[in-house]
């Protein structure tokens, strides 16, 4: 009964966020445009050769993803808090973990959509054969795991930053240092896909481990951060 209620409430908050975003189009279009612009700028900035592109491209991809993600994460929660809607949500007898997980899944969905849009552009701009063989199939889990790590920490801190006046500045300062392990693991795992190498640590395994840690800690801490 309790589990059913929990998932029903989680679904209600998630569905509301998706519906609201699809109608307002406030966040995901801006995130997508931002990610594409970063990729284009990286493409122009570096003198890419066949020998250097595989070492630069994964970094460019993940810089684009993390900046675009933070742009979106900051907006979704801040807008709800500014309008007083987060307080209204907290007035209801909803498990705070359900609110966190719904917000996290919503953010993950928006980041995922942005990544789906950005990946083909990335492949074309950097002339990378990600469509060949099983590269794309192996890249998608890495991209999703990286997005999960960023979203887990970002969702938690976006709620904290939303209460401050300098939220746009504070959110990246809080989140970037924490997601460094996720970003390093994701960049290295992506590089290994493009240029296979031996004697490398199990980057995907590390990515999964960081995700599990961030997700567990953030889920437990959310209640204390969101409530006074």
């Amino acid at each position: 009964m309790m589990a059913r209620l929990f998932f029903s409430q989680l679904w209600a908050v998630l569905w509301k966020d998706i519906r609201y975003e699809l109608r307002s189009k406030q966040t995901w279009i801006g995130m997508g445009m931002f990610a594409l612009l970063v990729l284009v700028i990286f493409n122009f900035t570096f003198d890419l050769h066949a020998s250097t592109v595989t070492s630069i491209a994964p970094g460019a991809l993940w810089v684009a993803f993390i900046f675009a993600s933070l742009l979106g994460l900051g907006r979704t929660v801040a807008a709800e808090r500014e309008q007083g809607m987060l307080d209204r949500l907290l007035l209801t007898p909803v498990d705070r973990k359900a609110i966190y997980l719904a917000k996290l899944l919503g953010n993950l969905l928006f980041i995922g959509v942005v990544e789906i849009i950005a990946l083909p552009v990335f492949a074309i701009l950097f002339n990378l054969p990600i469509w060949q063989g099983t590269t794309l199939l192996a890249l998608i889990p890495i991209v999703l795991l990286g997005a999960l790590g960023i979203a887990a920490v970002g969702t938690l801190f976006s709620v904290m930053a939303a209460t401050t006046q300098a939220k746009e500045l504070l959110l990246p300062i809080l989140v970037f240092p924490l997601v460094v392990p996720v970003v390093i693991s994701a960049v290295r795992a992506t590089t290994l896909l493009l240029v296979p190498s031996v004697n490398e640590p199990p980057w995907v395994g590390l990515l999964i481990a960081f995700d599990v840690i961030f997700l567990s800690v953030s889920t437990l801490l959310f209640q204390y951060i969101v409530e006074e």
Binding site: S8, A12, K16, R19, Y20, Q83, R88, T92, P93
Partner: peptide, 19 residues
């Protein structure tokens, strides 16, 4: 404190589910 992009009924159904 209602969601502006949702309809009147959608707002009530949402809060009904939470309660």
């Amino acid at each position: 404190y209602l969601y502006e992009e949702l309809t009147v009924l959608e707002n009530l159904l949402f809060f009904g589910q939470l309660y």
